[in-house]
């Protein structure tokens, strides 16, 4: 938690294509959050306003049902948590629960939108990284749909 936000951002998957100056701009919007193991970062149905980047620890994306708690995915260090900030008004589809002590870099979604529109090069690079992230998660989901261990 002592590292500067810039340093913590540069290894994150979403920042892979950003220049150091652009990372600095992003860092200006960032704040740190710590969650103890077992606590929730956000809950299903809440407004999805922020982008979370995982600095340390692990998060489970969970959904509860009468059959138990379904873990949809787990995310680790340098993964982005929550992609729904891109669409104002969107709500979280899952609970995000820290399964280990969790350090996050949190970026205000509304200010990030404004930054992307003001610095379109930064916006383009960030969107490209977002798209890559979405594609990778889609591919992983498709692979799991094959249910190949059966």
């Amino acid at each position: 938690m002592t590292a500067r936000p810039q340093n913590r951002l540069q290894t994150n998957a979403l920042c892979a294509e950003l220049t150091p100056a652009q990372i600095d701009k992003l860092a200006c919007l960032a704040r740190s959050e710590h969650h103890t193991a077992g606590t929730f970062v956000f809950r299903e149905g809440e407004l999805a306003t922020d982008l979370y980047l995982i600095d340390a620890g692990r998060v489970g994306l969970e959904l509860c049902s009468p059959r138990g708690v379904h873990t949809i995915d787990t995310l680790d260090r340098d993964d982005a948590l929550g992609l729904s900030w891109m669409y104002p008004g969107a709500r979280w589809l899952f609970d995000a629960r820290a399964t280990e002590p969790l350090d996050l870099v949190v970026i205000d979604g509304q200010r990030l939108h404004a930054l992307c529109e003001q610095d379109t090069d930064l916006g383009m690079r960030l969107m490209r990284a977002m798209a890559r992230e979405v594609i990778e998660r889609l591919q992983a989901t498709r692979a799991r749909l094959l249910d190949f261990y059966r």
């Binding site: 138990g68 379904h70 873990t71 399964t99 992983a140």
Partner: peptide
């Protein structure tokens, strides 16, 4: 694991979920 459904009385899975 590809699928994880945890019952309330079970110890949580310490690994990851995903492909």
């Amino acid at each position: 694991v590809d699928h994880d459904v945890r019952q309330p009385d079970c110890a949580p899975w310490s690994g990851q979920v995903g492909v």
